[in-house]
Design a binder for these strands. Structure first.
Lengths: 345, 345
DNA sequence: TTGAAAGCGCTAACAG
DNA sequence: CTGTTAGCGCTTTCAA
């Protein structure tokens, strides 16, 4: 059995409450007693039982991270480690711990969240996605539990605090950048369109086309299906279009890497034949061949700020629910250039 | 205030212990009472306070993950998400939660571990690295706390359970594969040699050279320094050697990507001029251009088994401390080929 | 500045 | 099958 506050108290000839006060470095304990008690703590190898403290103080100093359905999915995307890094950094600063969901299905994740929240294992939650028909966010609102979502919530925006990029604007800029390079036939490749971030980027893309009087076509809009390696199909479809695209806006850099590989397999050169702009600017974009033009969403910052927000919210639950937009920056690299017209097939 | 077991008990006209028994679905409670109590729980929106339960049961059902110094470092390496995915999968199966360290320095990580362990916030720990002068593992041994390390511990191997690849063998095979392709001047590029995994791979590489009577040279052995983008320098040094290498064994695929990029910048073609074999076979290897020959370390499995090990250890602290070696498989892709001799510079 | 006592919400003998 | 009782290890009034 581990040594408790009582054991220390006995040995130090003080009461348990005194020991407790020393633990929290209370100002009403004399320096002398503090020293004495601390010495005994050391000698006895005392260490506080956090669960007991949590039980009475009702503060866990830990925040829960909700990943999107299937940890697998999240974890395959370099976006995730990068947000986590940001979250982690701020939590560390504030001495908060991190607890991760492990669920593989929406259902099981939801249950984990309920368990975290109701089981009082966390003080706040960061939701790493915003998705159609998601139950987590409505639940947290209903419980009036401190949380922040990374991404733009689909409804009740006034009730939720979020940290996001302006994805519409970012995609618009990406597309306009291509338009300035004289591209006229620009394709958009996303993934699961149930996620708001994909919708936003799609909208931004479409808006850019509209504003510049380019005819869009549904044939130019494709989505990777999660779990299926349908990159092949997507690329096939696009290049065999009567008027194949000369440029592509691709929702994440890993997806862009897949597309680039498929194009390469068909001897289509980037950027000569097709220009590519991707999102996230993770290490993958820089190291790809050719290096990708990518919209830097400042993922680390997204995580850092989200974490700052929840923690502030925990400290002041009635705080004004401001939301944050993290600016994006287009990093121009070699995967995009002025349209030369298609020379392939 | 949330509703407690007592509130439910009162409303259901039973004792708190009965409610508690219903919670754990005890076999000694009649179906009838169970139904009644559950109904009331629902009505009142009762949910267990896990902290209270943990306090008395002394089991948290959560395991702590210790990342190597600087989460940043870990998180930039696709190895990490992949182990985490494996850990997560098994934990989910066994209904365990995951708690991550957030520290950026060895010192602060060590303190977090102490806090987790002594504060009794976790039942077991998985250490994601094995490193020289590390204090975490000795501490856990000293505390006799259930833990597993991923990687080969440096000392007291009999006292620690670990899950690892045979990295010596794997590197030996990688090198022999290159030797079979007629390469004679093979370079090794690692990173922080304080990590055992790097040492092992280096040793395997050297052993292969020795066995096949190739003269090694320290000039062929390079290390990336963490945090510094010295990939440039490493590549510079190697290609300007009097007898530059025709093949490289590189400790991780992200590092390999960096090297490939630098070589490309110097118009050195892979695999024609230089063949490359990397480790980990993360998604990066497959999507690189050209796709990399990589040693698949089955990272997911590493995590999955580690997690199974700690959990078993938690259930039976006196269990036989067997350790696991996860087999590696070489995935041959296009970054390596028969040595054509150097044609560059 | 310190101590006594009550209690956080739950479980676990023990008794019936 | 169910209730009573006594804690788990800590914090927190209240009183001294």
């Amino acid at each position: 059995m581990s040594v408790t506050i009582k054991d220390v108290a006995k040995r130090a000839n003080v009461s348990p409450s005194t020991v407790s006060r020393v633990l929290s470095d209370s100002s009403k304990i004399s320096e002398k007693t503090k020293r004495k008690v601390r010495k005994i703590m050391d000698e006895m190898g005392y260490h506080i039982n956090l669960n007991a403290r949590v039980l009475v103080q009702k503060s866990t100093q830990t925040i829960g991270i909700v990943m999107k359905h299937s940890a697998s999915h999240s974890l395959h995307n370099p976006f995730f480690p990068e947000v986590l890094r940001g979250i982690s950094a701020y939590c560390n600063k504030e001495d908060y711990s991190i607890s991760l969901t492990t669920g593989e299905s929406e259902e099981s994740i939801f249950n984990e969240v309920v368990k975290m929240v109701q089981g009082q294992r966390v003080d706040g939650v960061i939701v790493l996605y915003s998705k159609k028909d998601d139950k987590v966010v409505p639940y947290l609102i209903d419980q009036n539990f401190p949380f922040v979502v990374i991404g733009k919530p689909l409804s009740e925006t006034s009730k939720v605090m979020y940290v996001d990029n302006d994805n519409i604007q970012a995609a618009k800029e990406a597309t306009e950048y291509l338009i300035k390079l004289k591209h006229q036939r620009i394709s958009f490749i996303g993934d699961d369109p149930d996620f708001q971030v994909i919708q936003d980027r799609l909208n931004g893309y479409q808006e850019a086309l509209r504003v510049h009087g380019l005819k869009g076509s549904d044939d130019y809009i494709k989505h990777f299906e999660y779990g299926t390696p349908n990159g092949v199909q997507v690329v096939e479809d696009l290049i065999h279009l009567p008027d194949p695209p000369t440029a592509m806006v691709i929702s994440t850099d890993v997806n862009a890497l897949v597309v680039m590989k498929e194009l390469r397999n068909r001897n289509i050169t980037i950027p000569k034949d097709i220009s590519i702009v991707s999102f996230n600017n993770t290490i993958v974009s820089q190291l790809a061949s050719p290096p990708m033009t990518s919209i830097d969403t400042q993922t680390y910052q997204l995580g850092y700020e989200a974490s700052r927000c929840v923690i502030e919210l925990i400290h002041d639950p009635k705080m004004f629910k401001r939301s944050l937009i993290i600016p994006t920056v287009i990093k121009i690299r070699e995967s995009s250039q002025v349209n030369e017209g298609l020379k392939y097939v």
